Each structure stands twice: as structure tokens, then as C-alpha cells.
Simulated assay, not measured.
Amino acid sequence: MTTSESKRRLKIKDTGDVIAGIVLLGFSLVLVFYLVPNFINEPPILQNPMMSPRWLPEIVGWLILLFSVLLIFQGLLVEGDTEADERTIEKGSPQRFVMMVVALVIYVALFETLGAIICGILATLVLFVAHPVRTWWVYSLAFLFPIVVSLLFVEIMNVPLPMMPFWF
């Protein structure tokens, strides 16, 4: 005779990790098996598979899938100590939230008008102000990163981005 207590149940140690992992798993499955094959077209004559427009989204999708499964396993196997947990969420001020939304709006609304570089610089500066960056040299990264990323996409990956309004 067995009781219900003798049945072995899987106990979730960290529900936040399991829920986040399941959401990311669902997103990655949609990305890998639906969005990439159906909406990213490959040219008929392709000399190098790494030059395919599908290559980077597929890699990202499979990595999200892998890490979401690992996150689910972490939530099932590793017990998080709530006192010493470094992943606890601390709410920021409403001003920080508004500035982050402003940075997103700047980037989305002015991308075509100002170009990728200027728009990226403005949005990054707003984000640095929203999250108080005290070191002065870090602000130089707000100029360096958008320039490097935009030139990487345009010159190396051949992704057409609007560079600057008066780019010759």
C-alpha cells in the first residue's frame, strides 16, 4: 500500500527561471521553425551558406532554444537562495523608465531621417543618462559603438542601412 506522499514529484526550485525558459523556448521554436523558413528568402544561386540572409537568424534562434532549455533545467534543478540571489529585480525610478522609452522612440522614429549612426549615438546617450554613468570616458563608447556597428553591417555584412542624411 502506497500513500500519495511516496509518489515522486518534480519540484520546481525557481519558478521565474522555468517561466522565462518556457517563454523563450516558445519564441525560439516560432523563430526557428516558422519565421526564418517562411519569411527570409534565400537567393537561388548561393555560393557560400554563411552569406545567406537566413544564417544569422537561424544561429540566434538555435542559441535561444539551447539557452532556454538550460534555463528550464536550472529552474528545476538549482534552488535559488532568495537572500543571496543576485538576480533580484530592483525597480528603477519612473524617470529612468521614461528615458528608456524616449531612447527607443528616438531610435525608431528618427532612424530613416537621421541615419543609423546619428540615431544610434542619440539613443545611446539617452540610455547612458538614464542609467547614471559616472565615468566620463564611457560616453565616448556612445559614439564609437554606433559607428562601428553601422559600418560593420553596411561594409562587411552588406546590410543597407541609412547612414547619414548627407552621406555622399
Results as ranks from 00 to 15, higher is better:
I12Q: 11
R87V: 15
Q74G: 13
A123L: 04
E42M: 08
I12H: 07
P160D: 07
P37A: 00
V32P: 02
A103S: 11
K11Y: 14
V36S: 00
G92C: 08
R96N: 10
E83A: 15
E86F: 14
I40E: 04
R134W: 12
V32Y: 05
P49R: 04
V133W: 14
L46G: 03
L29D: 06
V101Y: 10
A116T: 00
V129A: 15
Q95L: 15
P94N: 10
A130M: 12
L161C: 07
T15L: 11
M100D: 06
Q95G: 15
V101F: 14
I72W: 10
E112H: 11
L63R: 02
D85T: 13
L31E: 03
L25N: 08
T2M: 12
T124G: 01
K13N: 10
P37Q: 01
V126W: 02
E5I: 11
S28V: 07
P53W: 02
F143T: 04
L77G: 11
G120D: 03
L104S: 12
L63D: 00
Q74F: 10
S4A: 09
I19E: 14
V78C: 13
P44R: 14
G120E: 03
S4E: 07
L77T: 11
L114W: 04
T2Y: 12
R134F: 12
V154D: 03
S68Y: 06
V133S: 14
F27R: 00
S52R: 01
G120Y: 00
L110N: 00
L114F: 05
P146I: 08
Q47F: 14
F168C: 15
L104E: 11
F166T: 05
W55C: 06
L56K: 06
I59C: 02
K7G: 06
V159S: 01
G92V: 09
V30G: 12
I106Q: 10
I72H: 09
D81I: 07
F111R: 01
M100L: 09
V18W: 11
V18L: 08
L141M: 12
F143N: 06
W136F: 04
P49N: 07
T2E: 10
I59H: 01
F27I: 12
D81G: 03
R87A: 15
A103G: 08
T113L: 14
F27D: 05
L35C: 05
F33P: 00
R96S: 13
E90C: 15
L122P: 00
L122T: 01
F143Y: 08
V98A: 13
A116M: 01
V102R: 01
E112P: 04
F166L: 09
V129S: 14
D14E: 12
L141N: 14
T3S: 10
V148H: 00
E83P: 09
V154W: 05
G21F: 04
A123I: 05
F33Y: 02
